[in-house]
Design a protein around this nucleic acid. Sequence first.
DNA 1: GTGGAGCACTTGTCTGAACAAGTTGGCCTC
DNA 2: GAGGCCAACTTGTTCAGACAAGTGCTCCAC
Lengths: 246, 246
Amino acid sequence: MAARHEEIAEALRRAIDREDYTVGSLLPPETELAARYGVSRGTVRQAVATLTAEGLIGSRQGARRVVLAGRRSQSFAELRSFAQWARAMGREATGRVITQEWRTATAEDRVRLQLDQGARVLHVLRLRGLDGRPVLLERTVYADWISPAVEHIETDCPSVTQRLLDDTGLVFAYGEHVIDAVAAGARDAELLAVRRTSPLLRVRRVTTTREGRPVEWSDDRYRPDAVSFSVHNSIGNNALARKTAE
Amino acid sequence: MAARHEEIAEALRRAIDREDYTVGSLLPPETELAARYGVSRGTVRQAVATLTAEGLIGSRQGARRVVLAGRRSQSFAELRSFAQWARAMGREATGRVITQEWRTATAEDRVRLQLDQGARVLHVLRLRGLDGRPVLLERTVYADWISPAVEHIETDCPSVTQRLLDDTGLVFAYGEHVIDAVAAGARDAELLAVRRTSPLLRVRRVTTTREGRPVEWSDDRYRPDAVSFSVHNSIGNNALARKTAE
DNA sequence: GTGGAGCACTTGTCTGAACAAGTTGGCCTC
DNA sequence: GAGGCCAACTTGTTCAGACAAGTGCTCCAC
């Protein structure tokens, strides 16, 4: 937290959290904020742009900014790591590898992970829990170049992301997530302790490095009674998109 | 499309689409783009910031920008209107009101829509289809101040959003969406033509005006074989957040 | 050849200024 | 009182310049 505009964004977030600015009320004009924090208007604009992207405030040319929502989970690394997300909530994440095996990359693997013909990939089936209760079943395929580092992680490591960062310096920087619903199969039902055919929230995702290189892709199935996803969208910010089948 | 930075963003989008810049390749430096388009560096930065937020390109201090993904559904009003989304894909959206009735706002309605005790709200159950096939079941509650305008819309109006814009000038500007999965109930199953207990993708959402005033809230259930959601996230842009139950 | 130092390049941060465009509320007229 | 016009205010856009910070490459010494 060095950049001045980040400090100001954080100060405003806290002020909204503290209800100095209540939902529906108006934020002070940019010029006033600039004077208050002793920065130029451009820096203030950078700060409020962050909050707008987060969905905390709304913005219209000519009118003062409006506070749209209060206390929002400050999702930083939230989506990139189950364990970090759990810790941020004060809950304990567990993880257990059910099966792990090397396979030759299929055509789908090669496309998603940008691999050459014949590359060997690591398939991992991992069950994850929150405060001891099973919540998520991950079927992950790791690219050939990272698989050796994944292979020797203990089977009950709670945070693979953290472990890979410590061991190899790898940062998960970008992710593309496709969300839908599926009926629990026999294996899903057994491991997640739900009835077969019971609805599960499925997230298929690809994670890449900061350089844009795909690291892994995964089919994650959540118990919908334990976890849901929340998305904010507005005219300017639209990370979420509806998609039709294929 | 007046603003220069939007034009530049669009030009870059098209260039990526045309594969002038292929996935994994590097974008020209800001200074070069600035010279090419005859604008200052700040304007170029605004343009590439848009593409970064859209997940098209990745950015790290010191290194050239990387193209992360090609052709992305340009979701503009996509989430705000089922009909507009369908039209953008070249598909035909249909809509049919199944039931419609006035009720006194419950405590939950009052909280979500910021209404006073005793306010009357309009509950609408609407079945929506894509190319004739049922795809989505919407259970929507409209705030008292907009309900009269909704009440007299024909029951088979394909785009309620467009209709409200035409009739009252109302713009749906912001939305908060919570996504999970549920099993189809008897009514869901009958109307969506799926088996009972079959998994559905549920989106509960609140829509607000540009001023931040809630207009409607809705429980939408999609056939997961027809529609899914796609989300992009990165270090800088995180509109999506995981949530635990309650 | 390997490691490290250094340098050129590129993106990130910030300023101060100016004008454009949209909103809001008050005032004036009818 | 209703309606329209206007003026003050606020956000959006753009510029040119400066420095900070991180990356990636070359080159040199060992």
